[in-house]
Design a protein around this nucleic acid. Structure first.
Lengths: 202, 202
DNA sequence: TAACTTGCTAAGCGCTTGCTTAGCTCACGT
DNA sequence: ACGTGAGCTAAGCAAGCGCTTAGCAAGTTA
């Protein structure tokens, strides 16, 4: 993650120190996982004493939630925009998949937390995040249904197909790293083609 | 995981208490993750005192390795057998995907550990497990290459296609649970069809 | 000037962690 | 009968954990 990406990630988070703490937490949570990361790790990486974290966040889990919530909402916004765009369902699905995959590749650290650290959230925070996830799934399912109705997709089961499309994107966060080939944008393009075949696009 | 599955999982692990500890560790690691699980959790769930774990394993990480290694080897064996089976590359790929997906669904607890707790392994154990993973990837890539050469598959990039095929199976371990629909075998069948489309099978 | 607020640190509290030690029980070979 | 070793437990140690407390420096307001 470049400094530029870091700086632009949470423009509304103030003061600057809170954003630096979140950035340090992203690195640590993505690398080692929430439970293997200590509050000292985060604060030290942000250039502060251990206690400084509690000036800006009530708990370690609250830092996780701030990262996870923002990430979920960004992903949903992107998917929603793609599904509502111009063109037939196949064209919109290509944009959606390319965007979803590219997002998971470029922001693979945030994405890893979004996708794999759900279980560490407080119950109330977990519920909030799951609601966003369901909306994202609904958008993908809706677009596939639309494509089937329009005769451009042919799938045996819409629910399973939607799961498969999302899985391809989500799993990118597991294996992708900075030096991976192909690059994020090219990977997104290739995956869009693969998904088109998967959905029987004609 | 049924008792039957548990009992048959590690037939060579002796004595019985060691197997019970591994079974308890599978439950806990899959549910909460390695770092959020304590040695007391494992031992207590296996009906023993905390110290009993160290009679059978030198460390908590060694329990993880025993589970991870065995799981990796089983998955590799299954994939290898499918790829070497009868029929053309498309038929063999259908068997491979159905088997891989069904395995990740029925054994989703072990699979979750295999796929998502790699980072908690000791460096030497990690290296051993990564070697098995590479062989698994190689088998899938080889089968796709074979299919492309035979003219039954049509993909832009073999490496990316192989990643996508594996991703579909691996990600099942993330979301699948006992009550999921469709069942494991049916999910495997549907995914095999989706992959056929993805690889441009004709 | 004085009171208050914001952002931070030094120090440390209470608790849990992975793991160790010392010793018990009991099946089994001789 | 008796020694042996495998399998287990009660107790606890050193280290590290999340988080709290008390207080300081600098900026802002009255």
């Amino acid at each position: 993650m470049t400094d530029q990406v870091l700086a632009d990630l949470w423009p509304d988070v103030r003061p600057d120190a809170a954003r630096r703490l979140m950035a340090a937490a992203v690195e640590a949570f993505a690398e080692r996982g929430f439970h293997a990361t200590t509050t000292r790790d985060i604060a030290t990486a942000a250039g502060m004493s251990p206690a400084a974290l509690y000036v800006h966040f009530p708990s370690k889990a609250a830092v996780l939630f701030a990262i996870s919530r923002s990430g979920h909402e960004r992903a949903l916004a992107m998917v929603t925009e793609a599904a509502a765009g111009p063109g037939d369902p196949a064209a919109r699905m290509a944009v959606l998949v390319a965007g979803f995959v590219t997002w998971h590749a470029t922001r693979h650290r945030v994405a890893r937390i979004v996708q794999y650290e759900l279980g560490a959230l407080d119950p109330a925070d977990y519920a909030a995040v799951v609601a966003v996830r369901r909306r994202t799934e609904g958008v993908v399912r809706g677009l596939i249904e639309e494509g089937v109705a329009a005769g451009v997709f042919r799938v045996a089961d819409v629910r399973t197909a939607a799961r498969a499309v999302l899985s391809l994107g989500i799993d990118v966060a597991r294996w992708y790293s900075g030096g991976s080939r192909p690059g994020a944008a090219e990977l997104g393009r290739q995956y869009a083609v693969l998904v088109a075949g998967m959905l029987g696009a004609r």
